[in-house]
Design a protein around this nucleic acid. Sequence first.
DNA 1: AAACTATAACGTAATATTGCAATATATAAA
DNA 2: TTTATATATTGCAATATTACGTTATAGTTT
Lengths: 108, 108
Amino acid sequence: MGTTKTDPFTDEQNKIAIITKALGHPARIAIIDHLLKVNACIGNDILEEIPLAQPTISQHIKVLKNADLIKGTVEGTAINYCINEATFELISNYFKNIAINTIHQDCC
Amino acid sequence: MGTTKTDPFTDEQNKIAIITKALGHPARIAIIDHLLKVNACIGNDILEEIPLAQPTISQHIKVLKNADLIKGTVEGTAINYCINEATFELISNYFKNIAINTIHQDCC
DNA sequence: AAACTATAACGTAATATTGCAATATATAAA
DNA sequence: TTTATATATTGCAATATTACGTTATAGTTT
């Protein structure tokens, strides 16, 4: 145990869970927010924004990359990261759909 | 360690992280999906949908409730759960906003 | 080449999560 | 009051996550 069971669930459910799980940490939300704020790619300037150690941030970036939430291209010694639109569109649509289907629930 | 640091982040970042973290498990996505499908409240019929033990599902429901994603009202022996619109609207707007602000990123 | 910069990888301690069996609680029905 | 039904709590073992010091890698500059 401690391991998440994935086989009882659909591919889409697992996919959404992977994405939301990857976003489920304030540092990773802060990284996304920063990427949006500078509206472009960044290298290690996240270190100046978030008071966590470099290896910790590197680890968080890895989590976001594994979930396809961000992508990066090598730029000299630095790496330029940016939002992966496709994944955010997917998750955005998922929630938009829920919002639409939830409007007329008046139980509870 | 093992504990998430919250003080370096804004209230909104922490709030979004709490919500996405709560959604970051396929069983919990499946519960939400089921609530949407039956478009109403349910009791323990989730047990017939998801092949996990009752205590496990009860625990997942607790996580969703703690994050304000669902709410429940007692109905005899059973409990009627349903989507908490407000929280889903909040998270939906967060992603909608990202989608809008990401359109013209053409780096990476 | 040597020094510097940016990032990743490794190792580790503390804590959290997952899944379940067993048990508890609470309302309803008989 | 006994029995059944629905849900929650507890306790536990396995595994995952978080955070970071240290070390490695790789490109850049001098």
